[in-house]
Design a protein around this nucleic acid. Structure first.
Lengths: 155, 155
DNA sequence: TCCCCCTCTGACCTTCTTTGACCTTTTGAC
DNA sequence: GTCAAAAGGTCAAAGAAGGTCAGAGGGGGA
């Protein structure tokens, strides 16, 4: 059921968790061998799952001694969560952007998967009721309302 | 006379009952093969029988490793809450009506005072942004979204 | 009986994954 | 400096799911 990409993603997350300072260094060829896949598969996983919008930075270097370095940006707990939410959501938010934000919140363990699923469902259900040009604005507004309430404890 | 849809519905409910955490994952093609029907039949069953109204959330993913995930909401008491959220809120809700509803939910100990306060604040903050004739509609919509998520017990 | 609503299907569409052929960068030996 | 080896990068195409929608079918109530 789980795709190869999912497995590789999990593996990398595991390594990242164990890594010091949230920095992980790997070799593409080696990882591809480990999973018996094309090296470009690794790029695919990085491009789709370890993006900036999800809070990761990826650096690479070619040639002998080349590497792929994955860094996880953490949300400073000190930084006021409410402020972050306001800023990141803004006045208008596409479905994709909303999805990225939810994934980041799950990553940061501010939401669990079930809650994220509920938020998605509630969002979709309500946003679909209005005509397309306003959906992004409504999505921002509803998501902000939901998160304001849901993340309140940690305010 | 039980229709094919009824059979599929029963089957899924059974699986869901046995599933851990009220989460079930299936593959559309596989299930369609099992019941010897068109794959789109599965969508029909999901659309008509596993709706939020009835206390379910469905997530899907396409492509390799695709799946259909059905989650059962753990609202308690599920029936009444679904009713409250879907019927009583309706398409439009005045501030006064919203307040009544919140008080009832607190009375029923489905929300605590702190949560109710947060909901009020979130509602006010977002609803005031738009022009008056639409505020009641927006209030209904936002409140429904918030409660959908907040009344989830397993969250 | 007739009609309406619920079922069901099939043709066609969109999204996500995986692979392979070919390209670019870097290093180190000579 | 040149060249070969050792990384990693790119992109298009095939493959693997699931989604959508219009229309045909069917059954029960008025």
């Amino acid at each position: 059921m789980e795709s190869l990409s999912d497995h590789i993603e999990k593996h990398l997350r595991n390594l990242l968790e164990q890594a010091e300072h949230g920095v992980l260094e790997i070799q593409r060829r080696e990882l591809a061998d480990q999973f018996e896949c094309a090296p470009s598969q690794i790029n695919y996983v990085l491009e789709t799952r370890f993006t900036t919008r999800r809070g990761y930075v990826v650096e690479t270097r070619r040639g002998g001694g080349g590497y792929i370095r994955i860094m996880q940006l953490s949300w400073q707990p000190a930084e006021e969560l409410a402020g972050v939410i306001q800023r990141e959501i803004g006045e208008s938010l596409s479905q994709r952007e909303a999805e990225h934000l939810l994934l980041r919140l799950v990553d940061a363990q501010l939401l669990n998967n079930r809650q994220a699923a509920m938020v998605r469902a509630a969002l979709e259900q309500e946003v679909e009721k209005i005509s397309v040009p306003f959906q992004d604005v409504l999505r921002a507004l509803v998501l902000r309302a939901i998160l304001t309430v849901l993340l309140e404890r940690r305010g």
